[in-house]
Structures are given as structure tokens and as C-alpha cells.
């Protein structure tokens, strides 16, 4: 499955950064989603992002949609979101980090992994500070399940919801960074600092 494009950069999967980012985004989203649904087994709040998305698009605001419909429709949007966040990481965020943050310049599995974690934690902050309180909060508040500022209350839980969301996004970012792993085809310590624009695509 390993591929290499004409720019001299090879990827773990796919032959271009775009394809590799899409595949990495899909894998990361599926693994994190499944773990989120399993969280309650470890006494953590269940993170059912497909249903939460479903509540936004076809759910509670428009009357009680069947939970299965909310799960499936929300799941489609959730997976598309995750894949596109993976694509944005591959085409924009990862090269940018390599150029702006000097220690992350080398194209090695470890730096690629750290970049994935940073991108996952960035989305954790956006999810906890904006998405959950501003979009999910008003939907669930009339049903006695307010989300609270920065996800400090969710479905009867306190700050552990915020930390479980951190775990979810860590799993997502870790898988993204491990699978989207651009490396120099010739080996050695090639870095983003010396990459041309063509090589970054």
C-alpha cells in the first residue's frame, strides 16, 4: 500500500498527500468513533458523535426523529467531517506545522505522530469550547441535559466529559498522525523546511 509521488515524498498509504490524508482521516474517525461508543465500558461518558450530529441535522429541533435515523444521518455527516479534517491536516496543517515549528520540520514517523496529536487536541478545544456548548447545549438543555461552559457538564457528568472528549480526540489524532506519515523516498533527514510547494501537495 506504500506509495511515492514524483516529488520524492512517500506515504504509508496512497501515492499523494491528499489520498493518504483521506484514508488516514477515515481510519482515525472510525477508530475514535467506535472507542467513543465503548467509553461507558470504562465508566466514562459515552461519546456518540453520530447521534449528536443527527440531533443537529434531523433531530430534536425538528421534533423527535427516530434515534436510528439520527444515528445514521448524523453518522454520515460525522464521517465526512472526520475525513475532511484529515484532508485539511494532510494538505495544509501538517506542512504548515513543519515550516513554522522547527522541531517538527523533519519528516519522521515521530514528528508526523506529534503533528497528528496537536491537530487532534486543536479540534478537542474547538469541540469543547464551541461545538458542544453552542450547538449541542441548546438542543439538550430543554431535556434536562445542559452541556455547560467548556463541556463541564454533559448528560449528568462533570469535568470527566471534557477529559473523555480529550481521550476521544487523542485517539483520533494519534491514528491520523501514525497513518498519514510522509517520509523522504530516498531516506535521510529531509525536512519540510526545504520542501517546495509542489512537494507539499
Amino acid at each position: 500500500m506504500e506509495g511515492e509521488d514524483s516529488s520524492g515524498v512517500k506515504y504509508l498509504v496512497g501515492k499523494t498527500a491528499g489520498k493518504s490524508g483521506v484514508i488516514a482521516g477515515l481510519v482515525a474517525t472510525h477508530i475514535a468513533t467506535i472507542f467513543g461508543l465503548w467509553f461507558y465500558g470504562a465508566r466514562l461518558p459515552k461519546f456518540d458523535f453520530p447521534s449528536l450530529n443527527g440531533y443537529i441535522y434531523v433531530g430534536l429541533p425538528f421534533g423527535f426523529t427516530h434515534p436510528d435515523v439520527a444515528f445514521v444521518v448524523g453518522g454520515v455527516f460525522h464521517y465526512v467531517d472526520g475525513i475532511l479534517f484529515g484532508l485539511i491536516f494532510a494538505l495544509v496543517v501538517s506542512p504548515m506545522m513543519g515550516r513554522v515549528i522547527k522541531p517538527l520540520a523533519p519528516m519522521t514517523p515521530t514528528t508526523n505522530y506529534i503533528k497528528g496529536l496537536i491537530w487532534g487536541w486543536t479540534l478537542w478545544i474547538i469541540s469543547s469550547a464551541l461545538w458542544m456548548p453552542l450547538l449541542i447545549g441548546p438542543i439538550l438543555a430543554p431535556y434536562g441535559a445542559p452541556v455547560g461552559v467548556f463541556l463541564t457538564s454533559f448528560d449528568g457528568y462533570g469535568v470527566q466529559a471534557l477529559l473523555a472528549n480529550l481521550l476521544w480526540h487523542t485517539i483520533w489524532g494519534a491514528n491520523l498522525g501514525l497513518i498519514f506519515s510522509p517520509r523522504p523516498a530516498s531516506g535521510g533527514a529531509r525536512s519540510w523546511m526545504r520542501a517546495t510547494a509542489a512537494e507539499m501537495r
Binding site: 466514562l44 496529536l117 457528568y157 477529559l163 480529550l166 481521550l167 487523542t170
Partner: peptide
């Protein structure tokens, strides 16, 4: 539950 969440996060990292 907070300790469990943070512990699992560190283990995953």
C-alpha cells in the same frame, strides 16, 4: 472518572 480519562489518554499517547 477524570483520572480514568486522563490515564487512558496518557496510555494512548
Amino acid at each position: 472518572e477524570s483520572l480514568i480519562a486522563v490515564g487512558l489518554t496518557f496510555i494512548a499517547i
